[in-house]
Amino acid sequence: MTEEELNISFNKAKSADQEAFARIYDFYSEPIYKFIFFRTGHKEVAEDILSDTFVKAWLKISQVNSAKALSTWLYQIAKNNIIDYYRVRKSQVCLDEVEEFLLEDGASAIDELNLDIEQRKIVDLVASLPKDQQQIIRYRFFEDLTNEEIALLMNKTEGSVRVIQHRAILKLKTLLNRKKKT
């Protein structure tokens, strides 16, 4: 879908055009599903949460100001639904703990079985980065999220996300170059 087509569908969906909303679903369903699946690790659960996400999106679409804000908004709804899933599943889990589960309980976004030696090295080093840096690298390079989407998910500004990403790259560079020496 082009940007213009997305704009048209968005405006129509805001006026309760279900067909237009269905086109928005077609455009975003796969990336949002993947985002949910990587955090829950279960296909059926991810399907249910995806369904809830879009039904909620339909009800609240009047809150979105522009088509550009759609993707970050959908990720936010999905994230909140995932948090609710963990709260219900593990009852009374606090929000900080849920962020941990999002990394531990989910599925890997990368094809672990088909990494070459260099790639394995780099993935292992990513896992050794400080939590924030690790999360941004995963979001950006393994899940293909934009800096804007990452900023919203991590409650940071885009500027902070870029700074942290840059630091992560520098750190990886230092570690990789150190390994090359030995």
Partner: peptide
């Protein structure tokens, strides 16, 4: 480094039938 990260192969997911999900949601 950025290039190497971008080339890390992504997981091949068993994706659902989005069309069936679509009709349930609609």
């Amino acid at each position: 480094i950025i290039q190497k990260l971008s080339l890390v192969p992504k997981a091949r997911l068993d994706l659902p039938d989005f069309a069936i999900l679509r009709s349930k949601i609609m």
